[in-house]
Simulated scan of single mutants.
Amino acid sequence: MKRYIYIITDRNRNNLHVGLCADLLKTLDFYKQMPTLFFDSAQQLSRLVYFEEINSEEQAMERFKYVSTFTRPQKEKMIRAVNKEWIDLTIGLNLENNMRQRPQMRPALSSVRRSAVTF
């Protein structure tokens, strides 16, 4: 089962929060629904700036423990290696997730073939 290690920050990059989850989109949605869970409204965690996808639960837990011990400069270096501009990666994840879902308006191919055969 896939696990994700992520770093989320506020709009001013004051706080860097390291987390571990099984469903990244649901976790990010939770942060949006509970904006003052960890901090006040001025420092709400809303920007996903880094994440890793790990296939093993044990490896993910080890990596999470390791990254959690990093100092702020070490976390910043890790983020800048893959996200130099510190852009919010949530937008790309939402777009990718929407592209994977099958459109609801298009009929299934098997039902089209069945109707063509019955004529």
Results as ranks from 00 to 15, higher is better:
residue 85 E to P: 09
residue 64 F to K: 03
residue 14 N to V: 13
residue 76 E to Q: 15
residue 110 S to F: 10
residue 40 D to A: 00
residue 8 I to A: 01
residue 44 Q to M: 11
residue 63 R to Y: 01
residue 16 L to P: 06
residue 17 H to M: 08
residue 106 R to W: 09
residue 87 I to Q: 14
residue 6 Y to A: 01
residue 2 K to M: 15
residue 101 Q to K: 13
residue 99 M to L: 15
residue 25 L to K: 04
residue 53 E to K: 03
residue 107 P to R: 06
residue 93 L to M: 06
residue 56 S to L: 02
residue 15 N to K: 11
residue 83 N to H: 01
residue 50 Y to W: 09
residue 49 V to E: 05
residue 54 I to Q: 01
residue 119 F to N: 12
residue 29 D to K: 08
residue 27 T to A: 08
residue 95 L to H: 05
residue 60 A to N: 02
residue 101 Q to H: 14
residue 81 A to Y: 10
residue 4 Y to W: 09
residue 68 S to V: 02
residue 96 E to G: 03
residue 109 L to Q: 14
residue 76 E to F: 12
residue 113 R to A: 15
residue 9 T to D: 04
residue 31 Y to V: 05
residue 44 Q to H: 12
residue 65 K to L: 15
residue 27 T to L: 10
residue 1 M to D: 11
residue 50 Y to M: 01
residue 20 L to V: 02
residue 100 R to D: 09
residue 110 S to A: 10
residue 50 Y to N: 01
residue 116 A to Q: 14
residue 116 A to L: 15
residue 55 N to C: 04
residue 92 G to E: 14
residue 63 R to F: 04
residue 45 L to R: 01
residue 93 L to W: 05
residue 37 L to D: 11
residue 61 M to I: 06
residue 55 N to P: 05
residue 67 V to Y: 00
residue 36 T to C: 07
residue 79 I to N: 06
residue 17 H to R: 13
residue 18 V to H: 02
residue 119 F to I: 06
residue 14 N to M: 12
residue 37 L to E: 12
residue 88 D to C: 13
residue 79 I to P: 04
residue 25 L to H: 02
residue 112 V to H: 05
residue 3 R to F: 11
residue 85 E to L: 09
residue 34 M to G: 03
